[in-house]
Design a protein around this nucleic acid. Structure first.
Lengths: 209, 209
DNA sequence: GTCTATACTGAGATAGAC
DNA sequence: GTCTATCTCAGTATAGAC
């Protein structure tokens, strides 16, 4: 059957979202999908490449939407810089909307990030968007020293990855969760302030110990 | 020999730092340490508990120093709130100093976070410090709505974990790396601005308080 | 109390018949 | 394309030697 591949993808997506990548064995996937063990390696090559396809088939439209929003913003600005807030919205809102619509997708993405599996094909794919976003932010912050900008972009990436993928109730029990859209809006406020902060002087000597 | 345990710990620390936790097999560790396979389970019980001890023997002094700095700050303030910057320094500087002194420790911590292994004993141990820090930050930000505060604490955690553990050159080639101390100072500026930012209006919300 | 040798179970991967 | 059988290697468990 030709839908063997689809059954594998759907079952893998569900199980990885529920239990995590490492905790999901190929034998569990084939058992629930009703296919043969070797068919996974026939269609995907390896467990890792199966994960790549699970991610990519959902990430492709999100990244396309991000690029489309950036195109629109830059066209509207007509050569001027797009604001930090707007760039962050273009980056984060498409993901938040999908996250609220398809909780299973964000579960897999969360597992992927929290298990440290952002590498290979998936990483390269996201870097297309990343490069565009960083370039737009750089234009919005022309006076920020280059090193400071690079570090702040790094901090943003960390806050972003963690926010999308780690439930805050694990760290702070009692935190109400709400929609992804809402948490992303809060994140944008936080990150934008960080980007626009005055540059802190870096002390040269050691601390009071 | 009584130092079998030490040899295992040292070798595990090195290999996990170099290759990651998942990619380091117990058989690699025993081979390089020159001990028997079963001795790992005799001394530690399991691979996961071995990781716990590798982390803990370095994390304990760092966390002690963090608590000591918080104690000192709060004593100096004499009942008044300690500033956001100061709390963040108490949390982050001890780690930065150890990171610059012992690169192997931060390599292991980085692997631990990037492979999503913050659970069990290690997590509980860090949460003692986390609770103190969040309480101090809450007092420094009395006017911030509770939900907003919790989310911002969450964003900070993400930026922190990512900053300590992911080399920025992986994401943005060409970024000069510098000392951990320096990057932590930049991080404090970024995070403090995020905490002190005006509260952004949430567009379409039902707040679950 | 420590360490060694060895066996058990389950993982991902692969070769070859159909 | 699919399936059976098998391979290698992982973490784990245990019996028994010093």
């Amino acid at each position: 059957m030709i839908d063997t591949k689809q059954k594998i993808l759907d079952t893998a997506e569900r199980l990885i979202g529920e239990r995590g990548y490492a905790a999901t064995s190929l034998r569990q996937i084939i058992s629930e999908a009703g296919v043969n063990l070797a068919s996974i390696h026939y269609h995907f090559g390896s467990k890792e490449e199966l994960l790549d396809e699970v991610i990519l088939r959902k990430a492709v439209p999100v990244n396309a939407e991000r690029l489309a929003r950036l195109d629109r913003l830059e066209a509207d600005a007509g050569g001027a810089a797009v604001s930090v807030d707007q760039v962050l919205e273009a980056l984060l809102m498409p993901m938040a909307e999908v996250a609220d619509r398809e909780p299973r997708f964000v579960a897999v993405m969360g597992r992927m990030i929290s298990e440290g599996l952002i590498h290979g094909i998936a990483e390269k794919h996201f870097q297309v968007v990343t490069a565009r976003v960083f370039a737009a932010l750089r234009r919005a912050l022309p006076d920020l020293p280059e090193q400071e900008f690079l570090w702040r972009a790094h901090f943003m990436t960390g806050a972003m990855a963690y926010t999308m993928c780690v439930s805050p109730s694990r760290v702070l029990p009692g935190t109400p969760v709400g929609s992804y859209r809402e948490r992303i809006e809060r994140l944008i406020g936080f990150v934008a302030a960080g980007f626009l902060a005055p540059v802190r002087e870096i002390s040269q000597v050691e601390t009071t110990k």
